[in-house]
Simulated scan of single mutants.
Amino acid sequence: MPGMNARDPITTTPRRAPRAPRADGAEARHRLLHTALRLFAQKGFAKTSTREIAREAGVNISAISYYFSDKNGLYGACFTEPMGGDGNDLVAICSTPGLSLEDALRLCFTSAIEPLKQGEIVRQCIQLHMREMLEPTSQWAEELERDIKGPHRAIVELLCRHLKLDRADDDIHRLTYAITGLSMQLYVNQDFIEAVRPSLLRTPRSIDAWADRLTGYAIALVQAEAARRKALANDEKTATAPAPARAARKKP
């Protein structure tokens, strides 16, 4: 299976759904999740034991099976719960009927950068994703489909609708990567931003400002691509026009 780590395979056998936390156990579940996130990010899935997680979280090891079914379920929860939401949220935004391109992009960027307000948790989540890329388990295939391929397809379709294209070509995919990279670079370069210009990420308000700016940058990218396509189409018409027509077009 693609993405499987032979040294530490994660089973794909059906598991019962994790239980919802009881009121008196919400804190224990919270400690388990965030302790597991920290340890998985630092050491990876294979080198992190459930006994170690439970010990550092200060709970009984049986709490892992109670709240998350097993180690696999806890590992999967670390990819979605701490930052809130997942790629399906972006897919839903892009698919909303009647939503303009600008409004859709603004909602996408707002949702994408909101987790930056959580500080250290975000760093651990990014570290976890990077470790999963370097030491893939079967979780990687799920992440690839839900949080990478799904949102990418949704933005591709959004751009095709806006540019009135029947299907996406390579340049639409290039444009999509350029747009999604605008928000991704805030996570990848978070430490550099805080070293060079910390005010850009210092407060919730400064983080919110990014959504508006990134939307403007993305719209400029789309407009540039639309202009490029229009110029290309005009050049092709000129090249295929009869000689007298081409000569007439060259006259002042």
Rank of each mutant, 00 (worst) to 15 (best):
A20S: 12
H173G: 01
T137K: 05
I207C: 09
G216E: 11
R153W: 00
E81Y: 02
I64E: 14
S100Q: 07
F40E: 04
D235Q: 15
L37F: 04
A77L: 06
P2W: 03
S199W: 06
A41E: 10
I61D: 13
I126R: 07
L101G: 06
P82C: 01
P244H: 09
A220R: 15
S69F: 01
T96L: 10
G87H: 11
C94R: 00
G98H: 12
E102G: 03
L107N: 04
E27H: 06
H152V: 00
A36T: 07
N60E: 13
S183G: 11
R106F: 14
E225P: 03
V156W: 01
R123Y: 11
T180P: 00
K71D: 05
R213W: 11
A36D: 11
I172V: 06
I155C: 01
M133S: 09
S65A: 08
L158A: 02
Y67E: 00
R229L: 09
A41M: 12
F79K: 00
Y217R: 13
E225Y: 01
K71H: 03
G25Q: 13
S49Q: 08
L37C: 04
L74T: 08
E145W: 01
A57T: 09
R228K: 12
K47S: 07
C78N: 07
R205L: 10
C94D: 10
A41F: 10
L33H: 11
S95K: 08
C125R: 09
E120K: 06
G150N: 15
A77G: 04
S183R: 08
N5G: 02
A154G: 06
L105A: 02
A248T: 00
T215H: 06
N234Q: 10
R123V: 03
K164Y: 00
D212I: 01
Q124A: 15
T215M: 09
K43N: 12
